[in-house]
Design a protein around this nucleic acid. Structure first.
Length: 924
RNA sequence: GGGUGCGUAGCUCAGCGGUAGAGCAUCGCCUUCACACGGCGGGGGUCACAGGUUCAAUCCCUGUCGCACCCA
């Protein structure tokens, strides 16, 4: 327990003692940090104190991030943990910088995904949605949503995400539905939404159209069937077509050959008979046919293949649909033309195909062709087969009437937003990908034959006339005016593509189409943080919709982060079973550790390889901070009101304040350019390698000394710098930092989140302090190295004598006698006088040479070897620098400051060489 | 086939014109009164390869090879 109860003793003689007792035993930090407890307590506190609330009336500048709404069916995976951690880090940082921050939460209704979940649950009860009917089914989905949906929002809280929860939206809630209708009606009236009958990617499993983006090509080992088609009027003559889909020949409308293919030139314009149906189809010349592939002649099935569809259009061919919505054979459109011809299949055979699946039909048809000897040969063949990204069914191109959005028209202003720099991608590289897709954008099929989603606000009259309106009353009014009488209307059965509503997210969540204060204050938002996988699905559409309806970009920056992979670089996936559950990591190591790990590993444009081990390693950093805090606490370090860093006079104090300022600059600069890795690592380095390894070590003798004035100053400085550390790390590790913020008396529990981001300061006269501390650090390091290399046990203290030391060097060494003693295991430091004792180790630091008498403890030969090695290294460097300076071209053409740097370097190297030689002479 | 990104220490990655860096791993020493989730120190790289530009190239340009991803 991190007991925070100040159970003050009653007044009395023992009061002072009790106060002391209470201080040490009741409010000391625990030996270890317990994340679970702190996280729960703090998150609840933040939420109840409305620490995440945005306030459009605040008068402050806004900083806004729209959450990429996770599917309402979703559970938190590593990808979420990554993107949400980055967003939260930015939001928390900007909040500290004094912005009115809005991180807009919400979830997506995710049409197909959610419908699938509920249908699966129904299947367990042996019910289909068709059994239930549309209304009951939708009610059932809503019920599911209320009970089990949105679990992800609870999980986001575990991560520490500072989302403004009371503003949570759902893509199908009332307000957003209103926005969807408004957009649909407007775009329809502008002619940018229309109905069209053309080929779509049809998912026979869901029995719905899907967009190009939802289709995934997969390389599949298939076959190429060579089928002979008899040429009409030329008995015995045939043309052989090669096909990967023999079952679609029922819908063939032509055979195409290349116009310049001499083999077939004479046949163009002739007719062939389809071996199965007896239907006569023409041989046409079309560039689509590739003479190099197969036989150079291809069958054309316009209603079941995208390329063939185009060929069909060019040659005015009939478009015969021979597969139904479940991809079963359907004969309605070809039955009338079945002809009984000698040598061809019997019409009865074809009639028996009705109702067969694609796969069964293929088998049956191939067998029949073989029996009738129309099949020439079969070759193995690898080809690309379109699959539904969700569900995995093989896509069947199908001729249907769907609603389309004229993305081509909307793309222009979206492209302009990026070319003009109103929107910047980070990394910039992604702009090319964006342009490539936007400039070749296809009409967007927005209707889906599902039940769960925004129902298309279109109504049809008895004659099929369409009325698009905000509601049925409005549609009825239009219809009454149109027909001059009251006719019964029926609403379109279809719903809109889920991305249609998420495309409106940046403004629909803010109350659009109403003119709300939120909309005025938070739009355009500042940055969108997301993965590259949804640039087309979502990012592009938000830009198009934002430009069209808000006449402004939806966000200024787009930070595109990589994918989370496992430690071996494999994509995390359910099927591979290599996923890691972020909640489990939070349980094991704490949210702070997970969040810090994510930031530390997020470089620009790189995937994040994340394993347990990494989180475990960075958890050590959380522990390190905790222990540093305990040390400070034990030494009486606590928040001091009115502390003025400019009043600090000790070199140690000035030095660490200057170092802290550098860390603040680095961290701030890194966050400004989305370098989460640099941000995390500069904090890490400052805390661990500067504050803990040096400052606290230097502080130990001060705290232990009798000089209470100096000790008091260093205590105050320690508190001041530790406060900076906590504020610097709050965005990435909000829990442990807040806990410590309170422990040190900086503020009450939960208050760190709203503290000001630290500003770097310039300390007058800090340069001298920095030079002094850096010199002492070098001195100590050098002594440590020599001792370690000579295998001197740390228990063995030895004096250090300075040979040829300048006066100020000597003075410094004396001032830091105590620290050098502790940190380098030195008994005392003194100027070297007289002869160097036998058996001494030596090291060169600046103008001075350190002499460490260790007679009997070191091997003189080894020391000689060591010094020789050092000397060789120094001479090597001299040679390199010498060579450079000897090059006339270098001296003449290189920047003067570089030349000067080289000259300085040479002088230093030569000095070192001379001193090393002297050291060698002394011991040999 | 078109495009993009990447090849730097055993591993994961920074650096991107002026003497090669970090973390982890490894090796040695240390249970020193915040921390062994620790401290101190060491070893380890012709920066994929081949050309070119430059006084100077891991960094810029061209090509080759290898890996990954996207589009067709």
């Amino acid at each position: 327990m991190c007991g925070r109860d100040y159970s003050f003793a009653k007044a009395g003689a023992a009061y002072a003692f009790r106060l002391f007792y209470v201080f040490w035993l009741d409010i000391m930090l625990n030996k270890t940090f317990e994340p679970a407890e702190t996280e729960k307590k703090l998150y609840e506190l933040w939420e109840s104190e409305k620490a995440f609330s945005a306030d459009p009336q605040s008068g402050k500048k806004s900083f806004t991030i729209m959450i990429p709404p996770p599917n309402v069916t979703g559970t938190l995976h590593m990808g979420h943990a990554l993107t949400m951690t980055l967003q939260d880090t930015l939001v928390r940082w900007k909040r500290m910088q004094g912005f009115d921050t809005l991180w807009q939460p919400g979830t997506d209704h995710a049409g197909i995904a959610t419908q699938m979940v509920v249908e699966r649950a129904l299947a367990a009860e042996n019910i289909t949605r068709q059994d239930m009917g549309r209304e009951a089914f939708i009610q059932r989905v809503w019920k599911w949503k209320e009970e089990s949906g949105g679990g992800i929002t609870r999980q986001l809280r575990r991560l520490g995400a500072s989302l403004d929860w009371p503003r949570e939206r759902f893509t199908m809630d009332e307000g957003l539905s209103r926005a969807v209708k408004e957009v649909f009606v407007t775009l329809f009236n502008e002619g940018l939404i229309y109905r069209d009958r053309r080929l779509v990617n049809w998912d026979p499993m869901f029995r719905s159209a899907i967009s190009d983006l939802e289709v995934e090509s997969k390389d599949v080992a298939g076959k190429l069937w060579y089928v002979r088609y008899p040429v009409e009027g030329k008995p015995g003559e045939t043309i052989t077509v090669a096909t990967t889909r023999p079952e679609t020949m029922l819908g063939d409308a032509a055979v195409a050959v290349h116009p310049e293919d001499e083999r077939y030139a004479a046949l163009v314009g002739q007719f062939v008979r389809l071996p199965l149906t007896g239907r006569l189809i023409p041989i046409v010349a079309d560039l689509h046919s590739d003479p190099e592939k197969g036989t150079g002649a291809v069958k054309i099935t316009p209603a079941h293949d995208f390329n063939d569809f185009e060929v069909g259009r060019r040659h005015n061919l009939p478009m015969l649909t021979i597969l139904d919505e479940q991809a079963r054979v359907i004969l309605d459109e070809i039955e009338d033309e079945l002809t009984s011809v000698e040598g061809l299949a019997d019409p009865a055979f074809v009639k028996n195909l009705a109702g067969l699946s694609r796969e069964e039909a293929r088998k049956t048809i191939v067998a029949e062709l073989e029996r009738l000897e129309w099949l020439e040969k079969i070759e193995p063949h690898r080809h690309q087969v379109p699959h539904a990204e969700r569900g995995g069914a093989v896509i069947e191109p199908r001729l249907t009437t769907q609603w389309y959005c004229d993305a081509g028209k909307l793309a222009g202003p979206a492209i302009e937003a990026v070319t003009s720099g109103k929107i910047s991608f980070v990394p910039k590289q992604w702009e090319n990908t964006f342009f490539a897709w936007m400039r070749d954008i296809q009409p967007w099929c927005i209707s889906r034959q599902l039940w769960w989603g925004h129902r298309i606000p279109a109504w049809y009259g008895p004659d099929g006339h369409v009325f698009v309106a905000h509601d049925d009353a409005d549609a009825q009014k239009q219809a009454d005016a149109h027909y001059g009488r009251t006719e019964v209307l029926s609403q379109d059965e279809d719903v809109l593509d889920t991305w249609f509503s998420s495309g409106l997210w940046p403004f629909s969540t803010l109350g659009w189409p109403d003119k709300t204060p939120e909309l005025a204050h938070y739009y355009p938002t500042d940055v969108l943080v997301t993965g590259f996988d949804i640039i087309f699905f979502w990012v592009a559409r938000m830009i198009m919709m934002g430009q069209h309806f808000m006449h402004d970009v939806p966000f200024r920056d787009i930070f595109i982060h990589g994918l989370v992979r496992d430690e071996r670089g494999q994509k995390m996936s359910k099927s591979k079973g290599n996923g890691i559950d972020p909640l489990e990591l939070i349980d094991a190591y704490g949210a702070d550790a997970l969040r810090f790990t994510i930031c530390a590993l997020t470089g620009i444009g790189r995937d994040v390889k994340l394993g347990r081990k990494k989180v475990e390693d960075y958890r050590a950093f959380v522990t390190k901070i905790w222990n540093a805090a305990r040390f400070c606490e034990m030494n009486g370090v606590k928040a001091q009101d009115g502390f003025d860093p400019q009043s600090v006079t000790s070199p140690l104090g000035q030095w660490i304040i200057a170092e802290a300022s550098t860390a603040i600059q680095e961290a701030t600069k890194a966050l400004e350019v989305y370098r989460f890795d640099d941000y995390a690592l500069s904090c890490y380095r400052f805390v661990w390698n500067c504050f803990c390894d040096w400052f606290l070590e230097f502080a130990k003798p001060v705290f232990a000394s009798d000089d209470t004035a100096e000790a008091a100053e260093i205590r105050a400085v320690a508190a001041y710098v530790f406060g900076i550390i906590l504020r610097l790390l709050q965005p990435v590790m909000p829990f442990v930092t807040d806990e410590l913020w309170t422990s040190f008396g900086f503020g009450k529990q939960g208050s760190l989140i709203s503290q000001a981001w630290p500003e770097p300061i310039v300390l007058a006269g800090a340069e001298a302090a920095q030079a002094e501390c850096n010199h002492i650090i070098r001195l100590i390091s050098e002594i440590r190295t020599v001792r370690a290399e000579m295998n001197v046990p740390p228990s063995q203290k030895a004096p250090v004598f300075l040979q040829d030391a300048a006066q100020h060097t000597m003075e410094r060494a004396e001032r830091w006698q105590e620290a050098i003693g502790r940190m380098a295991r030195v008994s005392h430091v003194a100027l070297q006088q007289g002869n160097v004792p036998r058996g001494s180790a030596q090291a060169v630091v600046g103008e001075a040479t350190l002499i460490i008498p260790l007679e009997g403890l070191i091997d003189i030969t080894a020391e000689e070897e060591r010094l020789k090695k050092e000397l060789a290294k120094a001479d090597d460097e001299i040679a390199k620098t010498d060579k450079k300076l000897g090059n006339e071209n270098f001296v003449a053409r290189a920047k003067p400051e570089i030349v000067q740097e080289m000259r300085d370097r040479l002088a230093a190297q030569q000095g070192e060489s001379i001193r090393l030689k002297a050291a060698l002479a002394r011991i040999s």
